[in-house]
Structure formats: C-alpha cells, structure tokens
Design a binder for these strands. Sequence first.
DNA 1: ACCTGAACACCGTTCAAGT
DNA 2: ACCTGAACACCGTTCAAGT
Lengths: 212, 212
Amino acid sequence: MFPAVLGWGQRFMPRHADPALPERRRAQILEAARRCFLERGFRETTVEEICAEARFSPGALYRYFDAKADIVAAIALEARAHAQAALHRLEDGADLIDALTELALIFFAAFEGERDGALLADIWGEAARDRALAQALAARDGVVAARVAAAIARAQRAGRAYPALSPQDAAEALMAMLDGMALRLALRREAGSAAAARRFRAFAVHVLKPKR
Amino acid sequence: MFPAVLGWGQRFMPRHADPALPERRRAQILEAARRCFLERGFRETTVEEICAEARFSPGALYRYFDAKADIVAAIALEARAHAQAALHRLEDGADLIDALTELALIFFAAFEGERDGALLADIWGEAARDRALAQALAARDGVVAARVAAAIARAQRAGRAYPALSPQDAAEALMAMLDGMALRLALRREAGSAAAARRFRAFAVHVLKPKR
DNA sequence: ACCTGAACACCGTTCAAGT
DNA sequence: ACCTGAACACCGTTCAAGT
C-alpha cells in the first residue's frame, strides 16, 4: 500500500522525499542508454529499448531528459570530463610529451573499435545540429587547449620545447590532430589506440622538441 | 496521351528509352537534397521535402536511391572528389606547402559556416554506422594520404623538407589535422576558413621545413 | 519502364490517470 | 511527487495501380 505519510496531497510534504533521487535516476538512465548505444548505436536504439534496459517507462524518462538527443549529449560531456582528468598530469611537472601522450591514449581508447567509435561520430553529428551541445563541447575544448598551451609555454621557458612557436596555435593544432586521429580510428572500426598514441607521440616530439 | 510506341507492353522495346535518364534523375535528386540539407540539416529534412524540391514522388525517389542515408553518402563522396582535384598541384611541381595549403583551403571552405559545417558532421555521423560509406571515405582518404606522402618524400629528396620524418606518418598526421580543424570550424559555426588555412600553413611549414 | 500517392510500420513524445 | 502506458504525431519506405 502507498504510505499516506508520503502521499502527494499531504499538507507539509517535503519538496523532495529523496533529494538525491533525480541524480540517481539520471545516472540510471545514462547507464542503460550507454549500454544500448554501444550495442546498437544511437539511432538504432529506441527510447523504448532504453526504458526497458533501465526498467522505466517512457513517461518517467521524459521527466529527467527533455529529448533522446539530450541523453547522448550528457554521455558526450561525461566522456570529455573523463579525458580531462588526464590533464592534471600537465600541471604535475610531468614531462610535457608524456602527459600529452597519456591524454591521447585515454581519448583514443575511449572511442576505440567499431561501437565506441561510432558513438564519437554520433556525438559530433548531434553537436552539429544542437547549438547547446556544440557550445558545451567547445567550452570544454577551450579549457583543455588553454591548459595544454600553458604547459607548452612552461616547457618553452624551461628550454624543453622549441621556442619559436605560438603555444596557443600549437595546442590547437595538436588538439585538432587528436580529434582527427580519433575519427579515423572510428571510421576504420579497428582497435588501434595504442599504435595511434605512439604515432601521436612521435609527431608531438617532432613538433615540440627544441631543434638543434 | 501516352504514345503507344514507347509503351511498356511493346515487344521490342529498348531497355532504356533514354540511357542517360537514371544519371539525370540521380543528379536532380542530389541537387534538391543538397539544397534541403543546407537549409535544414540532414535529419530535419524529410524525404517528402526532398521530393517536393525535386518535383518527384517518394516512390520514384526510392527507384534511384535505396534509402535517405544513401543520398548523404553520395553528397559526401562528391565533396571529397572536389577536394581531391586540388591534389593535382601536388604532382605539378608546385611548392609542397603551397599545394597543401590550397588543399586545406578548399576543404575548409567546403564546410565553412553553420550549415555546411553541420553537413560535414552529418556525413561522419552517417559513416559511423554505415559500413559501406565508411569504407568509401577511408578509400578516398587513403588515396589522398598516399599522394601527400609521395609529395613529401619527393620534397625530402630535393632537400626541401626535413628528412628524418616518415612521409606516411607525416601525411597521416597532417590529414588528421585537416579533419580535426574542419570539425572545429563546423562546431564553432563561424566563417574562418581563411584564418584556419593560414594556421594550417604555419604548422605545415614548422613540421616539414628542413631544420637548420 | 517509369511514375504516383495512399497505406504501412515504426518510433519519439505527450498526457490523462494511477498511487 | 513520481510513475505508467496507451494514444498521438510524424516520417521513412513500400506497393498496388496508373500511363
């Protein structure tokens, strides 16, 4: 039976019986959606399937997300946040090249192979027509690029990076290369993140190391 | 009235009254679709709208394309073929950097701004889940990368490019950068292809020019 | 052969009704 | 408040019927 104490019509009912419930529900939906998307891709997955996986009804799902696209958007931001964690090593005094390579490896590995790679392209496809998502991704990218640029500038001052190079331009170029390489991995539908990270590293060394 | 001479039931009717008709129809549909996609984006455009724009019925359209996705695929391959034309300068004896910059400019310009940029991401999104399209794009990319690599190797032999660099790896890296920069342009929804091409050029010079 | 357009199937989203 | 599930709206695709 429904306990009247928590009933909807009750006078001094707390606004949220469980204040953490919305966040729990969102996480529950995102987890289910991620499993579905990896299995079948974003477009092939129906809202009904996500609901079944999350043991939810469609009506309840739309209480926590305004649209199916918002679910991929949330997953996209999660993935970026994950890679961003690797940035801490850039400030840790770790070698610049090592830290960049680790960032690349995490990013590539997150989208390696057929299914995860398709998710990366899905996200970009969504961002292309979802202004808010595009801006959110661009904002994250801006933060990453700025921190990479700062790390490059520090390395230059320490004589450990080629000095006649704009840190901002170099950072932008390297980030663009990361995106492009990840995309190529995705479209080839192969596992090759380790090899890609090695190629990225060799290139970063060539670009950044002081010439002599 | 329908002329009986060309009638369907006639005995020795030629296989194709007009052998060029299928190609004309495809071109007609692609043009209409491109206009619609630029206006509203791939997903927002309905097949019905493409048909209206092309003055066609849905049934007729499906005679020339198996699915809506096949229409974007055809447009994607057209765009790549267009950029590929710029490759001829690589074999023309033109300066390597100049030729690469021109390639970059054509590529960026093709996807500059909000609408065309979104189309680029659309294409990648489709490729992510359309094996045939992904392979077709990868094949084109392979051709381009191979020709760029050959041009780099020639420049190295002529002493006009830094020699201790794998031409293949450098070509791949530069192509990945092109994709990544184009994507960033697309997501920022800005016109900036000229500036992006300049940044690409500066970076290519830094990467390729002999150190001294 | 080539085309039309109504009908079908499917899926994202909403909303009245339950507890 | 939180959830259910039937109903709605829309759109990609098919197919029987026309010329």
